[in-house]
């Protein structure tokens, strides 16, 4: 339970996270030159970046979840050593960044936040959505998780526990949502297509696409 809302204790020693690779720094440098010359419109650029934010990695995370649903051995590995299990599918984060998978059950719902900044498992989930980085989410997810979930349209039955996990530079979380009912026998690819980014942060639930009306 070491990561579960220990709030202050987990955020020490973050200094080493602030390192730019040559390529990261080069892209920032080009942006700086262009901004100083008035050749880019930062707001318009943000919109384009956001358009692509969902295309970095949510499919990677969806693949991990679908594999866990389909393969109990993999699910067990993911539970015990998420960093290694996820890396076995070819998705690796920055050096020194560890992953932990937290599984939703009928009794427990998991929600991920980074209270201090915006640590996020981008290798599996892509770029963080704007709301994840917003102070409102970061502070309220801890104080009032049910209220925050309601704003995402998620209402959990009474009696379901909500666990909030506070990310750090060294340890990041992937929520494994519950497999939707009625998907027995589905292929891994079809299962992966059901998994949304928000469900892997804990701000969304999954439903079968053709729910009976």
């Amino acid at each position: 339970m070491e990561g579960e809302l220990s709030v202050s204790g987990e955020h020490h020693d973050h200094d080493h996270d602030n390192h730019y690779s040559d390529m990261q720094a080069r892209v920032r440098a080009l942006e700086t030159v262009l901004a100083e010359k008035g050749l880019i419109d930062p707001a318009a650029l943000d919109v384009i970046v956001e358009t692509y934010e969902t295309k970095v990695g949510p499919r990677n995370g969806a693949h991990v979840v679908a594999r866990a649903w389909s393969d109990p051995v993999f699910a067990d590995w993911l539970l015990r050593d998420a960093t290694a299990a996820i890396a076995s599918l070819g998705y690796t984060g920055r050096q020194g960044e560890h992953m932990r998978a937290v599984f939703n059950t009928k009794d427990t719902h998991n929600l991920v936040v980074c209270t201090l900044c915006s640590c996020y498992p981008w290798s599996v989930l892509g770029l963080p959505p704007v709301w994840y980085k917003a102070p409102a989410y970061r502070s309220r997810a801890v104080i009032d998780p049910r209220g925050v979930l309601a704003e995402f349209g998620v209402t959990l039955p009474e009696g379901v526990n909500i666990r909030v996990w506070d990310s750090t530079a060294e340890l990041r979380y992937l929520v494994v949502p519950q497999r939707p009912a009625g998907t027995e026998g589905w292929s891994e690819t079809d299962l992966a297509s059901l998994v949304t980014r928000d469900s892997m942060i804990g701000t969304g639930l999954l439903h079968r696409p053709e729910v009976s009306t």
Binding site: S21, L30, E31, I40, L45, V49, V56, W122, G126
Partner: peptide, 11 residues
């Protein structure tokens, strides 16, 4: 594969 790639693409 990494956020800076999306950033470079968007730029």
């Amino acid at each position: 594969a990494e956020p800076w790639q999306a950033q470079a693409f968007a730029l």
